[in-house]
Amino acid sequence: MSFVTVSDIFQSYGKRPILERVNLEVAEGEFVSIVGASGCGKSTFLRLLLAQERPTRGSISIEGRPPAQEPDRDRGVVFQRYSVFPHMTVRGNLIAAEELGGERAGLLPRFFGARRREAAKRADAALERIGLAHVADQYPASLSGGMQQRLAIAQALAGRPRVLLLDEPFGALDPGTRLAMHAFLQDLRAETNMTVFMVSHDLEEAFKLGDRVLVFDKPRWDPIEPEAWGATITYDFDARDGGIPFQNRPFAETPTSQAQEDDHVPQV
């Protein structure tokens, strides 16, 4: 049973096609890396998953629900930059993740009294877990890039989304911090079994973190008018176990991949 279903997506800006015939089924808990050259539509695809844009044709649904019209709580997101609120403290950012969409977020979307103390307690627990407890009262501007992204991920997860969308989340980090962030993200996944889509420029990172690696590219190329055709998913790799998922475990133990192979032939 597929969790995220992308069916026959076309997206064009004006007359210019960006994506064409994108089909995808993703099971719950899968980590999908998305790679491709610049301008191949991978960020557009992420915006479509986020419902920040509506596709020209086709639809995306999560758990079989009708396609979203705007970004909602089903989708958590971390961008490369600007993912945390600069005017809130580190703790405030995590509390805000609950406040902004709280049920009684009426006239004043803010918690007071006991509710705020409880939210602060949860925020502090989360900060302890991601190793930011010592900077809870500081503003994001005083944090390093890696710490900001850790906070951004924790904030996105505090909203309890169905899928987590990462748009080059580690693109602006130095190599050492990037490795630490990989470990952080892998630990987090092991805990939550979250369905993740990650757009990345870094192939190594894509294969290391992803269960699947999708490559976006243009299957048709007009040398006179390069913009005449849109991109689609040209490769769909199984990246588990270092890219060799079937060699070191019995075939019967991989029912999900078996199901995928059946109804989802990689479009080469």
């Binding site: 920040q52 705007e70 993912s83 609120f85 902004l100 969409g101 709280g102 979307p109 904030q155």
Partner: peptide, 15 residues
């Protein structure tokens, strides 16, 4: 990005 992030956390226009 910040506006989108707030939306994914469930924020209304007023929020």
């Amino acid at each position: 990005e910040m506006i989108v992030k707030a939306q994914t956390l469930g924020a209304s226009t007023w929020a």
